[in-house]
Amino acid sequence: MRPEYCVTRNHIEVWQERVLPSGPERIRFGTVLRGSLLPILAWAGVACFVYFVYNPLMATVLGGLFALSFITGFVLRRRAKHSVCCSVCGAVGGVLDKSMAGF
């Protein structure tokens, strides 16, 4: 994969596509987060609910699940020869995108 094409909309899916540039351009980590506000709020809401209703240990388990999903996505992207920046953005966008698949 050529480095100049690594961080493009073709490799990073975010939940709300309207925040992405119109063509295959480089996007930043902030754009991925801005496009994923609803999934971020949903994860934070569930974590807060679990923390207060059950206990902090369950919220830690939920955070660990998120971290495990992120690490898996990052490793898979690095093995596919993506750059580190592309791997981070893609892993975050992918975890948030796939976690909201049922909605």
Rank of each mutant, 00 (worst) to 15 (best):
V53C: 12
A42E: 12
E25R: 11
A59T: 13
G23D: 09
A80T: 00
G63C: 14
E17V: 11
V75E: 12
G45A: 13
A80W: 02
V92Q: 03
P39G: 03
D97S: 07
V84S: 08
S87K: 00
V53T: 14
L96R: 01
S83H: 04
S69T: 08
E17K: 07
S36Q: 04
W43P: 04
V14P: 06
W43R: 10
D97T: 05
P56G: 00
G64Y: 05
D97G: 00
T72V: 14
R34S: 11
C48Y: 14
R78P: 05
Q16P: 04
C48V: 14
W43T: 10
S87E: 04
R28E: 13
L41M: 14
G93Q: 01
V75Y: 11
A42K: 07
V32L: 01
V14Q: 03
R78C: 02
C86E: 01
S22P: 03
G45C: 15
R26P: 06
F74D: 00
L37Q: 07
L20R: 01
R78W: 01
L65E: 10
T72F: 10
P21Y: 02
P39K: 01
L96Y: 04
S87M: 05
G94P: 02
C85T: 12
A47H: 06
A44E: 09
T60E: 12
G93K: 02
P39R: 04
V19Q: 01
R18C: 04
R79W: 09
G45T: 11
C86S: 05
H82N: 08
G73W: 09
R28L: 08
R26V: 07
G93V: 00
P21L: 06
L76Q: 06
L37H: 00
L37A: 15
R18P: 05
V61I: 14
W15G: 04
M58Y: 15
R79Q: 08
R77F: 06
I27C: 08
L62Q: 05
M58K: 09
R18H: 06
P56L: 06
W43Y: 15
V19F: 04
C86A: 12
N55G: 08
D97V: 01
R79A: 09
F70V: 02
L68N: 13
R34Q: 06
R28G: 13
L33M: 15
V75A: 14
